[in-house]
């Protein structure tokens, strides 16, 4: 009885702290979103109020859609992110399988070599990367971004997935060998389906930094036709810095798709993180 009562107080305190922090976490996002739907006067006079019928205004969105190429930027980001993600997951899983499954000369060394990429940010190689992209004529192409993000995503992917693949039952793979399956079939039909949860986690860890990156789009692909949404928003806001309606609408447009995706997939994502994929 005593214990139950005490844990009730503790629980109330826990809720109070968590609610307070949740408000801190969400407030700026909510503030941007509600104000993006208001006219200029309402933004300044009553910034905390949600849009009312009188103050409702979509002028900011109109400016953004007229002046900015947001649809194009969005497609660019989507293309780059999806292509890089597919390459990271496919090639990373293949390499992880090779490292986890086969004994060969230099296996451990290869693992270490790939692990360098986890420790060293790829941005430090920017000078070399830009020179290479200039030399191969890939500057201002989405291909350049896909290549960079793939290279950057592979080490962590290989590291996490090879841990998981080591846990796939050895007996199962041997049973498949006795049944005459080729090594490729064993990988694609037996092992890949079994590490799908880990792949989901890796996908999230790979995808978010790519989508949100500013550095490489700024340096490798600043051209209007290949701008990503992050760079596009940054440039747009820089140009319209005094037009609060436009700035707020631009921010809201960049937030909303990510937020929507996150709300749909948050359950899997959090399960992925807490499943111990990363310790």
């Amino acid at each position: 009885m005593n214990r139950a009562r005490r844990s009730l107080t503790a629980e109330a305190a826990a809720h109070a702290i968590l609610i307070a922090y949740t408000i801190i976490a969400l407030f700026p996002v909510v503030l941007i979103l509600i104000n993006s739907f208001k006219d200029r006067r309402a933004i300044f006079q009553a910034p905390m109020a949600p849009p009312t019928p009188e103050s409702l205004s979509l002028i900011g969105y109109a400016t953004v859609l007229e002046q900015g190429n947001f649809a194009l930027y969005f497609m660019n980001s989507l293309t780059v992110t999806v292509l890089a993600l597919v390459l990271v997951l496919l090639l990373g899983a293949m390499a992880a399988f090779a490292l986890a499954e086969y004994r060969f000369f230099g296996n451990a060394l290869m693992g270490l070599y790939l692990a360098i990429g986890i420790m060293i940010p790829i941005r430090l190689g920017t000078v070399g990367i830009l020179e290479m992209m200039v030399a191969t004529g890939l500057v201002n192409t989405r291909t350049a971004l896909v290549l960079v993000y793939t290279a950057n995503g592979l080490p962590l992917c290989v590291f996490i997935l090879s841990e998981f693949m080591r846990n796939v039952s050895k007996d199962l793979k041997d049973a498949a060998r006795i049944d005459g399956l080729s090594e490729y079939t064993i990988f694609f039909r037996i092992v890949l389906p079994l590490v799908r949860p880990a792949m989901a986690t890796v996908a999230v860890f790979t995808m978010i930094p790519i989508w949100n990156d500013l550095w490489f789009p700024l340096i490798l692909a600043p051209g209007e036709a290949v701008k990503t949404i992050t760079l596009g928003t940054q440039v747009f806001i820089g140009q319209f810095v005094t037009n609060w309606n436009a700035v707020l609408a631009g921010l809201a447009l960049a937030i909303l798709p990510v937020l929507a995706l996150y709300l749909v997939f948050s359950r899997q994502l959090i399960r992925g993180i807490t499943s111990g994929a990363v310790k």
């Binding site: 920017t126 000078v127 070399g128 080490p155």
Partner: peptide, 10 residues
Amino acid sequence: IYTAVMIYPL
């Protein structure tokens, strides 16, 4: 890919 785009430029 890792060697060409990450390690070599580094």
